[in-house]
């Protein structure tokens, strides 16, 4: 026999405490979203695996630190080969490597950043498509908008969820690697040299967070079936890269150095990151002969077109998402 008192026996009291402000409601959506997404072991696994980039950066920093000591010796020859393979710079003839520490670290971060972008693509594919699509499918929106949640706070909360996971891939490992590298390579002196790098890492990582989050949120608001959102995201990332490869292959450099060179979003992001890290300027300002770093510079591109493309997609995506959410909130109110 059920001996627990009936629900009505507990009594009912009206809430008389203080309520948090309306503009903070996104925080509840964010926390719930992160918890829900993080419950998936695959997402957790992907996030943990992204720390391999931090490990990779640290390994390269360690190698560079060893080279600063062993420069010119026989022991260093293998390490020169590895550095050349990853960073495309030939340091075998360079003395006083410590003088080029900052530019080398920038190259390390740019190299890792390019790999992290693929990881971001995968993490977004797992964590992003369901953000709004699942709410649409479960008809959960009236539950949100029956509370003091505005379309903007709803969108903000959802965007923060995907931003959290992108940040875990593209920001946290890099900052950890920077701290580790600074602590193990000369302490305060290195800190002074690499401080600006922290800002650059935040800008590039933040840019990816804003762009990736906005695009996947817009896609997620377009369908209640996350299958379509996922395929849309894959096509959005993959097809331009393939198209760009064809364009670069068949058209001459002078034709593709303009706006035709910014068809691939991957390339747009790396060109922008290259500019933020100041790789080209940093290498060119060194007294080193050009053949040392020529391969590291890659194809020269203007920043304007990639920046315009990324900005247009970000703003456009946010607008699409906002319009859709406003529409949902109105239909929820009508329901």
């Amino acid at each position: 026999m059920n001996t627990a008192p009936a629900t009505s026996a507990h009594g009912y009291r009206r809430w008389s405490g203080q309520l948090s402000r309306r503009r903070w409601t996104w925080l509840a959506i964010f926390v719930a979203g992160v918890r829900l997404t993080n419950r998936a072991t695959k997402v957790r696994g992907l996030v943990w695996m992204s720390f391999m980039f931090a490990v990779g950066s640290c390994a390269l920093f360690y190698m560079l630190a060893r080279l600063e000591i062993l420069a010119g010796s026989d022991e260093a020859s293998d390490m020169y080969g590895l550095i050349n393979m990853f960073l495309h710079v030939d340091l075998s003839g360079v003395k006083q490597l410590a003088d080029f520490r900052e530019v080398l670290w920038r190259s390390v971060f740019l190299f890792m950043f390019k790999g992290e972008l693929f990881w971001v693509f995968v993490v977004i594919m797992r964590a992003g498509p369901g953000l709004i699509a699942d709410d649409l499918k479960a008809r959960a929106l009236p539950i949100y908008f029956a509370r003091p949640v505005t379309p903007l706070t709803y969108m903000m909360g959802k965007w923060m969820v995907v931003a959290f996971f992108i940040g875990m891939v593209v920001l946290v490992p890099n900052l950890l690697a920077l701290i580790f590298g600074t602590l193990t390579t000369g302490g305060l002196q290195t800190f002074g040299q690499t401080l600006a790098l922290a800002g650059d890492l935040l800008i590039t990582g933040g840019g990816v967070v804003v762009f990736g989050g906005a695009v996947v949120l817009a896609l997620s608001s377009l369908s209640s079936d996350k299958r379509y959102v996922m395929v849309g995201w894959v096509a959005f990332c993959l097809l331009p890269v393939m198209a760009q490869a064809v364009l670069f292959k068949v058209l001459p450099d002078e034709t593709t150095s303009g706006w035709l060179g910014s068809v691939s979003l991957y390339r747009d992001i790396t060109v922008t990151a290259d500019w933020v890290f100041g790789i080209r300027a940093a290498w060119e300002s060194t007294p080193l002969p050009r053949e040392v770093f020529d391969r590291a510079l890659g194809r020269q591109s203007t920043l304007v077109y990639p920046a315009v493309v990324l900005l247009t997609f970000t703003i456009g995506s946010l607008l699409i998402c906002y319009c859709r959410v406003v529409r949902f909130s109105r239909s929820a109110a009508n329901a």
Binding site: V231, L239, V246, K249
Partner: peptide, 23 residues
């Protein structure tokens, strides 16, 4: 000829076709 076949092979048969079939 190269432009035609590169686009057909790389984009149509290596990207769009698998994506469609995946969907």
């Amino acid at each position: 000829w190269e432009a035609y076949h590169s686009a057909m092979l790389s984009l149509m048969f290596m990207a769009v076709l698998p994506l469609l079939c995946m969907l």
